[in-house]
């Protein structure tokens, strides 16, 4: 039943003399939620950015469905339309309202009729619980609201997979829950997701697989129960206990105060 949506094969990336990715291979199946954890500076963001070619990898192949992503060969715009991306710093377009932020992708990229795009954008904002903020500008929104608009903006392109690059790291603790709840709902609805995050609660509840990345290589991967409770590698155990201390034990996401 499960067919691979994303296949990464032996990916390498060097910045100057520092090798950030040292041969990473990873497959994400349709409907699967994969959470990548690992110390900072180990190439988690670089890995995500290589997938939609915001960063050009040095070596290795990436397939989206059956199509190999190759700059100059494949149309990058077409590929990126199929991959939604959510950034740590939200990166909402500051000069546009929440509604316009969500509509601009379909309008500019898919050449959708403006009226239809605004209707779609309204639906996507409803999906993240922000219909009432449609006419607010990013600077008028809280961090959590901004990130939810950013998720809606990516969803409006109807992507086959969503990449989340530490979506809650720039948020105040009390705003994290609302973003995780939206992500959880997405996961439950069957969206394929590749998430860089240290939110243990989310990882435990929503992830099908945890990937522990360190120093540019995948140290270990497996289902959350195994990685959290009974990892094979000592290094994984160390890291898990470290972030458990920092981010709290893997408690229930749904227990948090989620509604605004």
């Amino acid at each position: 039943m499960s067919k691979p949506i994303l296949r990464i094969n032996n990916l390498h990336k060097k910045f100057k003399d520092t090798e950030v990715l040292k041969g990473v291979s990873l497959t994400v199946d349709e409907g699967e939620v994969v959470v990548i954890i690992g110390p900072s500076g180990t190439g988690k963001s670089t890995l995500l950015r290589c997938i939609n070619r915001l960063i050009e990898p040095d070596a290795g192949e990436i397939y989206l469905g059956d199509e190999k992503i190759e700059p100059g060969v494949s149309n990058l715009s077409k590929v990126r339309q199929r991959i939604g991306m959510v950034f740590q710093d939200f990166n909402l377009f500051n000069h546009l309202t929440a509604l316009q932020n969500v509509a601009i992708g379909p309008i500019k990229v898919k050449k959708m009729d403006k009226k239809a795009a605004l209707k779609l954008a309204t639906q996507e904002l409803e999906r993240v619980g922000l219909a009432d903020k449609a006419n607010s500008y990013p600077a008028e929104l809280s961090g959590g609201q901004k990130q939810r608009v950013a998720i809606a903006r990516a969803l409006a392109m109807d992507p086959e997979i969503m990449l989340f690059d530490e979506p809650t790291s720039a948020l105040d603790p009390e705003l994290i829950g609302e973003v995780l709840e939206v992500m959880k709902k997405l996961a439950d609805a069957g969206m394929t997701m590749l998430v860089v995050s240290h939110e243990m609660g989310f990882a435990r509840e929503a992830a099908d697989r945890i990937v522990f990345l360190e120093d540019g290589v995948i140290v270990e991967m497996g289902p959350p129960e195994k990685i959290f409770n009974n990892p094979e590698k000592e290094r994984t155990r160390e890291f898990i206990s470290k972030i458990a201390r920092l981010h709290g034990k893997a408690q229930d996401v749904s227990g948090a105060d989620l509604h605004d």
Partner: peptide, 9 residues
């Protein structure tokens, strides 16, 4: 980056 990621040229 966000604009490119949406698929804009």
């Amino acid at each position: 980056e966000a604009a490119l990621a949406l698929g804009m040229s």
